[in-house]
Computed example of a mutant assay.
Amino acid sequence: MDAAASSQKAMVDHGDQPHVLAVDDNLIDRKLVEKLLKNSSCKVTTAENGLRALEYLGLGDDQKNTSNDSGLKVNLIITDYCMPGMTGYELLKKIKESSIMKEVPVVIMSSENIPTRINKCLEEGAQMFMLKPIKQSDVKELRCRLMKYSS
């Protein structure tokens, strides 16, 4: 097993409830994703934009003042692509550039099916690209992939 796989396994082994950070600037979409993830037995933390997500992950500009002092590990980040201030793609790049979070799978969601955008995100390291609106079956597939990826 390579280092990335063992790191993934360690992140999921902490319990049966993966901890997912859901990032979306649209409150309704954010609540929908949160509900679907909770229905799939995930612990969910939400953020309304990329900057808030980075702060939660301890990757913000002021890293010593991180809100993730509780020691909660995030097993998966699911983010909208189109957000003001910082796109999901830019968030993905910052996460993948980080030494402490680069192994965490990132899933990008978008209501726009643009192949060049999808390919760009996958090439940058996104685990999956999902089209909105997200359905329970999408979350089940995501959870299966996360568990398969971690073993």
Rank of each mutant, 00 (worst) to 15 (best):
M83F: 10
M101Y: 09
S110W: 00
C82N: 15
G88W: 10
N113C: 11
A53I: 01
L92A: 04
R52G: 03
Y89F: 15
T45A: 02
S110N: 01
P105V: 06
D29G: 08
L59S: 09
L54Y: 05
E112S: 13
T79Q: 04
C82T: 15
E97G: 05
L59N: 03
V44A: 00
L76Y: 03
Q127S: 14
K64G: 11
L36H: 00
M109Q: 13
V104P: 02
S41M: 13
G71Y: 06
I78C: 03
E90Q: 15
N39Q: 14
S111W: 10
L92W: 07
G58P: 01
E34I: 02
A47G: 02
G58M: 03
Y56A: 04
N49F: 06
R117C: 02
I100M: 14
V44T: 05
R117K: 14
A53E: 02
E48C: 11
I108P: 06
G125V: 03
S99A: 13
G88L: 10
N65D: 09
E103Q: 09
E48H: 10
D29T: 13
K102C: 04
C82G: 11
N119F: 09
E90N: 12
I28P: 09
L91C: 01
I108L: 13
K73F: 09
G60R: 06
G50R: 10
A47N: 04
I100Q: 15
D62V: 11
I77C: 01
M86F: 05
S110R: 03
S99Y: 08
S110M: 03
E112N: 12
S110V: 01
D80M: 09
I78D: 02
K38S: 13
T87L: 10
C82P: 09
I78T: 08
S67V: 12
E112D: 10
L72E: 11
D29C: 12
E112Y: 10
N113E: 13
K43E: 09
I95L: 07
Q63M: 15
M86C: 07
V74A: 01
L122S: 01
E55P: 00
K35M: 15
K73A: 08
N75K: 04
E34V: 02
I118T: 13
S111N: 06
C121S: 11
G58H: 00
K120W: 04
L122W: 04
I28M: 12
L37F: 15
L36I: 02
S111M: 12
G85F: 05
V33D: 07
Y56F: 13
V106E: 00
A47F: 11
I118E: 10
G60W: 05
L54P: 05
G71S: 01
C82Y: 13
S99W: 05
K73G: 12
Y56M: 07
L51F: 08
D61M: 14
Y89I: 08
L51N: 02
V104D: 03
L32H: 01
D62Y: 14
D80P: 05
S41P: 04
K35T: 11
G58R: 02
P105L: 08
Q63V: 13
L57C: 01
S110I: 00
A47S: 10
D61T: 15
E90M: 15
T45R: 03
R52F: 08
K73S: 14
L51Q: 09
L57I: 00
A126D: 00
E103N: 13
N68H: 08
D29K: 05
S41E: 15
I28R: 14
S67G: 11
I77K: 07
K43I: 13
R52A: 15
E124N: 14
E124I: 11
